[in-house]
């Protein structure tokens, strides 16, 4: 497992931007480092919408925004003088996407499990994720990706970057 093969989980949130920034600053003096910026697409369930058209509109708005912020996060590496060839993007489409049929897709049932699957497949030695800091109640009722990763990730190093907002 290559510890310099780093997987950064990104979801458009402020803490995930902070995790990208942190990673960029950490690795800028390390040669031969490889970063994969991972976005796992999550789209709202069709069940929530009265018509298919409303659902598709919402999905289109979201995917456009996801891709825009992913590119913005990618630029953070360039701004930290990390060579373009050292940074990849991986955008995993939602299995329920109305737009794209992909061989590999995310079911949306557990982002943590999806991240670990990608980590294993890509032989990543390090996972980086931002954490916004949630209460015990929120963790219990809604779940937490970083807590789930902490429990389940055993095959590599895990960097959890606390949000400055906490």
């Amino acid at each position: 497992m290559n510890i310099y093969n780093i997987l950064v989980a990104f979801d458009s949130s402020k803490p995930s931007f902070e995790a990208v920034e942190y990673t960029a600053r950490m690795i800028r003096s390390i040669p031969d480092v490889l970063v994969t910026l991972l976005f796992i697409e999550r789209l709202p369930d069709k069940d929530l919408f009265e018509t298919e058209a409303l659902w598709r509109t919402e999905c289109l708005d979201l995917t456009t925004e996801y891709k825009r912020t992913l590119n913005k996060a990618h630029e953070l590496f360039a701004r930290n003088e990390i060579h373009e060839n050292s940074v990849n993007q991986e955008y995993i489409v939602s299995c329920s996407s109305p737009f794209e049929g992909a061989k590999v897709c995310a079911t949306g049932e557990s982002i943590a499990k999806d991240i670990i699957t990608i980590q294993k497949e890509g032989n990543h030695g390090t996972i980086v994720i931002g954490r916004r800091g949630i209460s015990k109640e929120e963790e219990f009722l809604f779940g937490s990706v970083s807590v789930d990763l902490l429990r389940q990730c055993t095959g590599c190093a895990l960097w959890i970057v606390n949000s400055a907002e906490q």
Partner: peptide, 15 residues
């Protein structure tokens, strides 16, 4: 009833 996106979609049932 159903809810929006969350890391553990089944947690509310467990609760």
């Amino acid at each position: 009833y159903t809810f929006g996106l969350r890391e553990n979609p089944f947690a509310l049932d467990l609760f």
